[in-house]
Design a protein around this nucleic acid. Structure first.
Lengths: 239, 239
DNA sequence: CGCCGTATTGAGCGCTCTCAACGAGGGTGG
DNA sequence: CCACCCTCGTTGAGAGCGCTCAATACGGCG
C-alpha cells in the first residue's frame, strides 16, 4: 500500500468500522460454547435477514457477501446506515438492550451468514468477562465513529457526503478478486442514494460531476475510483 | 404527566439518551473503589472541560449544570452532538478504546462535575464484571439512538430537525425550578444552530415560523414550547 | 453613553428536491 | 427470434429550501 493510500485509509477509518470479535482471546471452552449451536444461513440477493421492529434471533457473522442495514421512515424514505461484509458481526446490540430492532437487514448480494442463537449469546454474556470486555471496546469504538458520521450528515453537502461514501465503499468492496486498492463498487444508484441521504437523481448528477473531474470512472453500472486523493480532498475530512 | 406528554416522551426518547450507571447493583467494595479518588470540578459558563484531540482524564459525572459535547471541523463549522445534564456520565468511552477525544466538552452554564480518574476507572473495568455489563448495555442503547439520529440528519430538513431538537431540549431543560412539563430553553441561537446543523439565520427564521404557528413562544432569548404535540407532528418522527 | 456580543431581518444566489420524460438492458412469453 | 415489459439509470426543468453576506436592532455592562 502506498503512502497516499495509507493516508486515505486513516482519514476514512474515522467514518466506518469493521465490527469483530477476537476469538483468539477466548478460552477453548468459551469458543466451543459460542459456536455450539450455530446455524448457517444462505441468502439470495434482496432477501431479508431480519425486519425492523422484530426481536433479534441472535448474533450474525458475515461469512461471505454483503448485508445492508437500513431504517425505513413513515414517509417512505429509507436510510442505509451500514453495509456489512466478510467478518462483520451484528444483530447483537438489541439482544443486550432487549429491544426490538430499529433497522432491517437485507442482502445486497448472495451471502452466507452464521447465526449464533440469542440464548447462547446471552448465556455467554452473563458468564464471560472476556466477551463483555471485547464487546464493550467494540461498541465504544463504533459509538465514536457514529458521532463523526452525524457531524458529516449535519454539516456537509451531497458532493462531500458522496465522496466520503465512495471512499468507504471502496474499502468494503475491495477483495482479492479486485485489482489491488481499487474496487468495483456495484451498489445500485438507489442504494447509494439511501446511503448518502439524497435522491437518485442527485447521485447520478454528482457521479457525472466526479467523472468530469476525472475522480471516478464507470464500467456499466459500477463505479471505480481513479483518484482517491482528490476525492478525499473533496470530502472535506482532510486538508 | 398527561397521555400526550407520555406519547411525546416515548417518541422523542428514541433520539436522545441519559447516560448513567446504576450504582445500586455494585458491591459495597466496588462503589467505594470507584469514588475513592474522585475530584470535584467547578466550571463557569463557557469554560472548557476537555479539548478535542486530548486524552481523557477520566470519567465525568454531571452533578449540576449543563455540558455541551461538540466537534470542530477544519472549515470552522462546529457540531454539537450531545448536551449532558444532571446525572449524565461521559468521557469514559475514549478510555476504553484508548484513543484521543474526538470531541470537546464545554460548560453551557455554571456546572459542577465529578471526575473519577482514568486509572481508577480502568482498574475497575478490568476487575468488575458488573461495571462491564452495565456499560455495555448503556453504550449499546446509545448506539441505537445514534443510528436513529443519523437518519434524521440525513433525511430531514431544518424545520423537522429543529422541532425534534426543541423537544429534546425541553426534556434536558426541565427541572424542579421550571413549571411542570414546559421548560425554558436558554441555549443561544449559535448553539442551537450548531446542534441542529444549520446557520444562525436559519434558526432565527424557523423559530419565527414556529411562533407564527403558535408552537412556541419566546421570553427574552429563551424559548418555551407551547404546543409540543404539534411540534412532534412537524418533526416527522410520529404520525 | 458607548461598546460589544448576540439576535434579527433582508436580499440574492446556489444547491437540492421533485416531477416528468426518455434511454438502456435484461428477462419473458408469444 | 422478436416484441414487449420491467427495472434501473439518465437527463431536463422548475420550485423551494438553505446558505451567505450585509445591515440593523437589542441588551447587558463598563
Amino acid at each position: 500500500m502506498t503512502d497516499i493510500e495509507e493516508t486515505i485509509d486513516k482519514a476514512v477509518g474515522k467514518y466506518h468500522f469493521q465490527s469483530s470479535i477476537h476469538f483468539a482471546s477466548f478460552s477453548e471452552k468459551e469458543r466451543a460454547t459460542f459456536f455450539e449451536k450455530k446455524q448457517l444461513l444462505s441468502l439470495k440477493k434482496k432477501e431479508v435477514l431480519f425486519e425492523q421492529d422484530t426481536y433479534s434471533r441472535g448474533l450474525y457473522i458475515v461469512k461471505s457477501g454483503k448485508i445492508k442495514i437500513q431504517q425505513l421512515n413513515f414517509d417512505g424514505s429509507n436510510q442505509i446506515l451500514f453495509i456489512y461484509g466478510k467478518g462483520d458481526i451484528f444483530g447483537y446490540r438489541n439482544l443486550i438492550t432487549n429491544e426490538r430492532n430499529n433497522v432491517s437487514a437485507i442482502a445486497l448480494e448472495s451471502s452466507a451468514i452464521e447465526l449464533v442463537p440469542a440464548a447462547t449469546f446471552l448465556h455467554l454474556l452473563k458468564t464471560s468477562n472476556t466477551l463483555n470486555q471485547q464487546l464493550l471496546r467494540a461498541v465504544s469504538d463504533e459509538f465514536m465513529i457514529l458521532t463523526n458520521r452525524i457531524n458529516i450528515f449535519a454539516q456537509r453537502g451531497i458532493k462531500e457526503r458522496l465522496s466520503l461514501a465512495l471512499l468507504i465503499l471502496n474499502k468494503k468492496y475491495t477483495g482479492k478478486e479486485t485489482n489491488g486498492y481499487f474496487a468495483e463498487i456495484t451498489l445500485s444508484r438507489k442504494d447509494l442514494a439511501d446511503y448518502v441521504g439524497t435522491s437518485i437523481e442527485n447521485i447520478v448528477r454528482t457521479i457525472q460531476f466526479f467523472k468530469q473531474k476525472k475522480l471516478v470512472k464507470t464500467v456499466g453500472k459500477s463505479i471505480i475510483i481513479t483518484h482517491p486523493e482528490n476525492l478525499l480532498i473533496l470530502s472535506g475530512i482532510y486538508y
